[in-house]
């Protein structure tokens, strides 16, 4: 989702927002994000400010938070696979996708937090890497890549971090049942019955 032309996007958003009555962001950082990024949606998650953004904008949002909102640290990047959800949290104005990439930011200087969530489609699980902006999330992005198979474009060293290097599959995906993954010891005589293709 690259820059959409302003007019149609606005219309589209109006349509989605009509029934749900988008909440006004009470958090000043969230308000700044919603104002700066088209399509960003504010959500009050049990008293914590959350902003949903398009995956392609994730790096821009992080840059904005770092350079203009004094967010010193990106604490954590993780992801969720919603494939088998019983019931899913509904946020007005957000089109749910299978994956969610979640980044938690902390400003030590302003003593506030914000969480940014991007809905990532299963067909193209790719988001821009935050590592060039916050070097500390390098390991976290490798972990998300390793366990959930989400590709962080621009990461300097996107390799498996927890699983063996020759592992196939991404164990935290809901359709990657551990029992169906072949055991991968070095020198294993061959694939087992029921091996799933990568």
């Amino acid at each position: 989702m690259s820059d959409p032309t302003p007019a149609p996007a606005d219309d589209a958003r109006e349509d989605v927002h009509e029934p749900g009555a988008a909440p006004a962001p009470w958090d000043e950082v969230a308000a700044a994000l919603v104002a700066a990024f088209e399509g960003a949606v504010f959500h009050d998650s049990h008293g914590q400010p959350v902003v949903y953004v398009a995956p392609a904008r994730l790096a821009h949002v992080a840059t904005f938070l770092r350079d203009e909102q004094q967010f010193t640290t990106c604490l954590d990047v993780t992801a969720v696979d919603h494939l088998l959800d019983g019931e899913r949290l509904v946020v007005a104005g957000v089109e749910p996708e299978r994956f969610e990439v979640v980044a938690n930011f902390l400003s030590h200087l302003r003593n506030r937090r914000i969480r940014v969530i991007a809905e990532v489609p299963a067909a193209d699980p790719t988001v821009p890497s935050l590592t060039p902006i916050y070097p500390g999330v390098s390991y976290a992005e490798r972990e998300v890549y390793d366990l959930l198979g989400i590709v962080f474009e621009g990461h300097p060293d996107l390799t498996r971090i927890l699983m063996p290097d020759d592992w196939s599959g991404h164990p935290l995906r809901k359709d990657d049942a551990p029992a169906r993954v072949p055991v991968t010891f070095k020198g294993d005589p061959g694939p087992r019955v029921g091996r799933v293709a990568e």
């Binding site: 998650s45 049990h46 914590q48 969720v80 959800d85 019983g86 019931e87 949290l89 979640v102 969480r115």
Partner: peptide, 8 residues
């Protein structure tokens, strides 16, 4: 209930 949170 369905939801998400981060606690530290």
């Amino acid at each position: 209930p369905a939801g998400e949170t981060y606690v530290s």
